[in-house]
């Protein structure tokens, strides 16, 4: 029920983001969602793509530090209060959310949230049991 997210280490210096995304472009990788966590000196670029393995290979070939991380992709109805229910559920069930970021798909009426929690598999099951849509890897890669 979890999907693979690329995490790329980048130094905070001009042009790095462009270089990373150009490598993905050259390898014909399609980006589904993207987010950056940054500190003063470095950042972690997190990307959901259509072909994670190929993307990792392309980035490594360019000497970049990259790992695959399992995250959950949750489909949420695009209306007020829908997202808060999901977050409340995770909190009540004792899941520790490391980070999250959202994107909107071409499907009308749905937003998607990528969530990284400590125990991803269990969290995905809990969300699913409470009626939330959990996206399978194939669905997301084929979007």
């Amino acid at each position: 029920m979890q999907i693979q997210q690329l995490s790329v280490f980048i130094e905070n210096k001009p042009g790095r983001m462009a270089e990373v995304t150009e490598v993905l472009a050259d390898a014909q990788i399609d980006i589904r969602a993207i987010s950056v966590a940054d500190t003063r000196d470095f950042g972690i670029l997190r990307v959901i793509v259509d072909k994670p393995k190929e993307a990792v290979e392309a980035l490594k070939a360019h000497g970049m530090t990259v790992t695959l991380t399992k995250v959950i992709a949750v489909g949420i109805d695009d209306k007020p209060g829908a997202f808060s229910k999901a977050v409340r559920l995770l909190s009540n069930e004792g899941f520790d959310v490391e980070y999250m970021y959202a994107f909107i798909s071409r499907d009308k009426g749905k937003a998607f949230v990528i969530i990284r929690v400590d125990n991803g598999q269990k969290a995905a099951e809990a969300l699913h049991a409470n009626g939330f849509q959990i996206l399978e890897p194939e669905t997301i890669y084929a979007m």
Binding site: S7, F9, T39, F42, I44, R46, T65, T67, E98
Partner: peptide, 15 residues
């Protein structure tokens, strides 16, 4: 310099 064995996905672990 970072290497793969030192790298993790969260800011917390890099710090």
């Amino acid at each position: 310099e970072m290497n793969e064995s030192m790298f993790a996905d969260t800011v917390r672990s890099l710090e």
